[in-house]
Nucleic acid binder design. Sequence first.
DNA 1: TACTTTTGTAATAAAGATTGTTACATGGCA
DNA 2: TGCCATGTAACAATCTTTATTACAAAAGTA
Lengths: 150, 150
Amino acid sequence: MQISSRFTIAVHILTCIDTLKDEMPLNSETIAGSVGVNPVIIRNLFGKLKKAGLIIVLRGGNGGVTLAKPLSEITLLDVYRAVDSVEDGKLFHFHANPNAACPVGRNIHHVMDGRLDEIQDAMEEKMQSMTLADIVADTKRCIKDEKQRA
Amino acid sequence: MQISSRFTIAVHILTCIDTLKDEMPLNSETIAGSVGVNPVIIRNLFGKLKKAGLIIVLRGGNGGVTLAKPLSEITLLDVYRAVDSVEDGKLFHFHANPNAACPVGRNIHHVMDGRLDEIQDAMEEKMQSMTLADIVADTKRCIKDEKQRA
DNA sequence: TACTTTTGTAATAAAGATTGTTACATGGCA
DNA sequence: TGCCATGTAACAATCTTTATTACAAAAGTA
């Protein structure tokens, strides 16, 4: 199955915070409007991103969300891990009951584990090489291009 | 969410075919016994692996399954793709309704798509570098070690 | 203090995928 | 004609995701 949209939504949230901070109040309601989901989904992700130290969230009038660190210090891997994109941090679901009475059944887990980790590492290293600063820079460039065309 | 156990089960199946071919009849029943799932799960995977040209499946008495090509020519990526490990071949689930009325909402998909593809490519390249011959060699070594210890 | 706004979170439901299981038709060989 | 194994349909159980309502808790303001 696919990796949860929590990940792309979280990137969307962080991009909004930096890109729209001078244009509108940044709360779960307005961001939900941009993402196209229920505000509670956003508030739950606020909780995870806050716990990971990526954002600061305040309650009450004039509350809302701000970044806790520079965009250049937030990698896609940080976001991916913050929102529990996969169960227990493991990308692959290994079948649970291989038969220990079979020579293959009792060894396959051990033989595959290292390789599955290598594959996951390759993916996570690529994620670590990309920062939110890259994403936001591209987004702002797109917006500027739109204005020029208009 | 995690990648379906169809992937690890399929690797288990192919490993059984080569490792146990002289020890027992290789049909959905015996392989299901090694994997620890219902034979119908195995038969459904037979269908996908067959369609991908990795195995040959015969019905009737003395039926069962054999490899369609050398293990060294089957990569983990081949198996991963054969069994539809992720929907539409896309690793990431992108939230479906970003708001086109928002500057971020109407650009985020385009900005992220290339990067998500890069991440997926990094993972798939690693998978392509590993063959079933590697897995089976390790498995046979484990089995030999077990016998020495006994 | 009372009011308003916004987060935090529980509870619930609907939809979708995975996995397990039974049942039976189909194909292929003796 | 039997026998055996695959192919597949049909269903159910479980789990995760996503959506939604409701309300308590916190924080600022009049």
